[in-house]
């Protein structure tokens, strides 16, 4: 185990997993409690447009994906709040539109698109040092924003109508929250890829909800769960030489399903003792 840490790619991978756990632990709680999993999936998948454009322009896809995912968050948030069309219809359309843009630009890019799979499904073992710094910066932005707007975000998620009456700029805050989701997506691309982002956003938060009704504790627990799952997934993927992103998701999903069975079993056996 310890000798693994001698490899730079391994320490980078561990740090990347931890940084991703922080972002998705905090933002995932909002995604789960406000029930905006679908729009988060939309933002993540639409970001593929940014990957395509980056390939076309020949720039680092991480830098291309950042403005594009923010742009898709702004568009989805604004249109879904302002138009009369049902929100999930808008999300469905923009979800596919973003991906279509990505595919067109990749088609226009001469030659072969290297590492494309990395961005779609993640590869935590190949995270370069420069991306670690980007992830660190985005984590800092996410933590800082949530720290100063904690009471507003909580009010927005719990009771939007009352928050509005109390003078909270709910529409702007909602769009800001979507932008934070976009940043989280960027942080997680290297770890699990665009396609698998949703699992990392929802599973740790949903799991932590089983153990606490306090939002702050939920965030800390989600970060802890995320760190445990990504590290476990990373080690398994190294030893069995399988795709790291997918391994992390399988570890998470298994833990979540086991937890459901465990809770069910506990409540059933608890009832038996009672009767």
């Amino acid at each position: 185990m310890i000798e693994l840490l001698q490899y730079e790619f391994m320490t980078n991978a561990l740090v990347a997993g931890l940084l991703a756990s922080i972002a998705c632990g905090i933002i995932g709680v909002y995604v789960v409690v406000k029930k905006i999993v679908f729009i988060s999936g939309g933002i993540a998948h639409a970001s593929f447009g940014g990957i395509g454009i980056s390939y076309f322009l020949g720039i680092n896809p991480m830098f291309g994906v950042l403005p594009f995912s923010l742009f898709s968050a702004l568009t989805m948030g604004t249109i879904s709040k302002r138009s009369d069309v049902p929100e999930d219809t808008i999300i469905g359309i923009l979800w596919s539109l973003g991906m279509a843009i990505g595919i067109i630009f990749i088609g226009w890019t001469p030659g072969y698109a290297p590492d494309l799979m990395t961005y779609l499904f993640g590869n935590i073992l190949t995270v370069p040092g420069s991306d670690i710094y980007l992830m660190l910066a985005l984590d800092a932005v996410i933590m800082g924003t949530v720290y100063v707007l904690y009471k507003e975000f909580m009010a927005l998620c719990y009771d939007e109508e009352f928050s509005k009456v109390a003078g909270v700029p709910t529409e702007k805050l909602y769009i800001l929250l979507l932008c934070l989701i976009a940043l989280t997506v960027v942080v997680m691309i290297r770890v699990v890829g665009l396609i698998l982002v949703i699992a990392l956003l929802t599973i740790p938060a949903a799991l932590s909800r089983q153990y606490t009704s306090n939002m702050k504790i939920m965030m800390y627990l989600s970060i802890l769960f995320g760190a445990i799952f990504t590290t476990t997934g990373l080690i398994l993927s190294y030893y069995f030489d399988i795709a790291s992103g997918a391994t992390i998701i399988i570890v998470m999903a298994t833990a979540y399903l086991l937890n459901i069975v465990l809770q069910k079993w506990k409540s059933v056996s608890g009832n038996r003792v009672d009767s």
Binding site: V33, M154, C157, Y158, F162, S213, N214, M215
Partner: peptide, 9 residues
């Protein structure tokens, strides 16, 4: 609010 399972005291 209808979401009574929200983690708020």
């Amino acid at each position: 609010p209808s979401n009574i399972d929200f983690p708020i005291s």
